[in-house]
Write a protein that binds this DNA or RNA. Structure first.
Lengths: 190, 190, 190, 190
DNA sequence: TGATAAACGAGACGGTACGTCGAGTCTTCGT
DNA sequence: ACGAAGACTCGACGTACCGTCTCGTTTATCA
């Protein structure tokens, strides 16, 4: 067992904390996640948690970012329709089904209450995510499938907006049919 | 001065509580809203708040529902494009600018943490709201501007989804240009 | 069922309240007696209790006084020693064993915290009780068994003081041997 | 400033709490002593009070025990009568006049409602106190002033019982004349 | 023989204190 | 130097009773 060292933080403690927060969120929900509980479950002193993370949201954010590394790189089939359909389906599955998606929804929820969380979520997640969202469109413009002057921001909002809306607001299912239809309508505009 | 009676609750207390919660949310944010604070600001005993509302979210919900009564009835100009543009602009203003919109965002945030809030939000707000969202489309089908077999659910998601997405996720501005473009793209599909 | 009348209170309600308070004291102790609980157990409105008794102590006091009516009249055998022994034994049994004794101990306890209770206890209980305590001595002076100028106050304190002391302070048993010895020592002084 | 450490509690906090409870009892009476009030007056968090004392009675008990350390050691004049008169006078003054006496009366009152308080009062106060009460008698038997087989328990009850009785029950004054007479009557028996 | 006023049940009200939980800070000791 | 442990202040939680009040109902008395 590791108990302190003179050179930098304990990676062991960091991992334990991040795992603990994931577990707590899944088992007890956002309200059930407390700094006290995280420390206890991680077998770590409360102060150790506070030393590296200012709040439980920051712990969740780190856990989320860690988990996101390997996610959601959209495929490249050389065909805009096919790429978009696959990407939106992936996105829907991520948001509704995966553990990381649950963490994201929790963070998005908290972002409504706390502008700092909102800001952090945008810099650390949305930036990369929108880059991934734009990728199929960008490749299509390069291939000439889309006009070069297309407004990528607007196009992405049109495509993913309804998906997030269903997930975060209506709670409706986000079926493959739904995402495919979104793509079809989008393609019909150009 | 009224202080309780056999036949039900004090309307005075109810109003004071709902006003207090609105004020607190706007001035101090969601975390700054506490049952204790609501009672204090309303000049009401804590027990009186607990007697009628199980949690601060329920107080917010009631305040929100109360405020929503007079809102967001979409206009009828006899023209689909004009109606939709006006309605989306109204919606954007409600979500981003109004006090009620702030309450809605807080509730939508909390809905991510608590399924009961999500359910309540859907039954008490989304139902009516989507009825309002559909109204211009429904009138257009009656006028023959839109095909009779149009999928209203899908159409509404397409139209309002990107608006909610910007408000709740990206934090981007929801300008008149943005909503107008959404309407233009939608009309181009039919 | 009785529900109020123009002139005078409901005897039914009074009885129910006094019984309720006795029951609560025995079952749940002094702290378990509350105005709320008395009303509930008596099947009576809280206001009805407050209308007739200012506090739970007053209810207890009334219940106690009611119960005391038929108690502790010292016997008259025409012999000081015999009378005193019997009276002290009765007193000891009352204080340690009877339900009324439990109420008395509770009231005596509360009297330490509240001068008003102390005053009420003295006027409503101690007055009569000390008259009863003095009775054997008074009769003995009339018979010439005791000098006419004896200080009755002091004599009573000497006799009953140690009994109350054991009951209220040390918690020691108050056996027949103990009370008999008190009498013997007292008689030895004269 | 000290704020918690691994090895035990803050002595500063302990002292502040004990002083606060003494002050509150004297100024506002037993009912005016609350855990909330103790914490506030001591400038200490409520949780800190609860961490070390389960109830206000326990705080009072500790304060009382602390204060009792330096009290009531009976004098030794080598003469039973003189020793007893002095000791009973001291006892009377302690019970009726001193701040500690007020705390004792409050605890004795509470002991009537709560057996645990009664038990604690006996072990922590009565044990030592009766040892002090017996001391003059014990010395007298050694000197031969009293028979060696005297029942000390009984003798102490006879001597102090009437004093406690007046203090706790009748509320009568406990004058020097009264205590002297008690001693005189006691000596007359032997 | 009503009307009417007191006492009743019910229970909401503004309060105070309860005892608990978690937040975030600080100090000590062990590794 | 860092981590474990845990005491500290602080603020909110949700509950129990307090004592006051208003409401609508019941019932003995008196006009």
């Amino acid at each position: 067992m590791h108990h302190g060292n003179r050179h930098g933080r304990s990676e062991q403690a960091r991992q334990a904390v991040l795992q603990a927060v994931d577990g707590l969120l899944v088992e007890r929900g956002f309200a059930g996640v407390t700094m006290e509980g995280i420390a206890a479950r991680a077998g770590v002193a409360k102060q150790t948690v506070y030393r590296w993370w200012p709040s439980k949201v920051d712990v969740l954010m780190d856990a989320f970012i860690d988990d996101m590394e390997q996610h959601l790189t959209p495929p490249d089939h050389g065909d805009l329709g096919r790429d978009l359909r696959a990407h939106l389906a992936d996105l829907a599955e991520f948001l509704t089904t995966s553990d990381s998606g649950a963490v994201f929804r929790a963070l998005a929820g908290q972002a409504q209450h706390d502008p700092a969380v909102a800001a952090r979520l945008r810099t650390d997640y949305l930036g990369q995510q929108r880059a991934r969202d734009e990728l199929p469109l960008r490749r299509a413009t390069e291939r000439g499938e889309l006009p070069a002057d297309i407004d990528l921001e607007f196009a992405v909002d049109q495509l993913v907006g309804p998906v997030y809306y269903r997930v975060l607001v209506t709670g409706g299912s986000v079926s493959r049919g739904f995402t495919d239809e979104l793509v079809a309508r989008f393609l019909a505009q150009h």
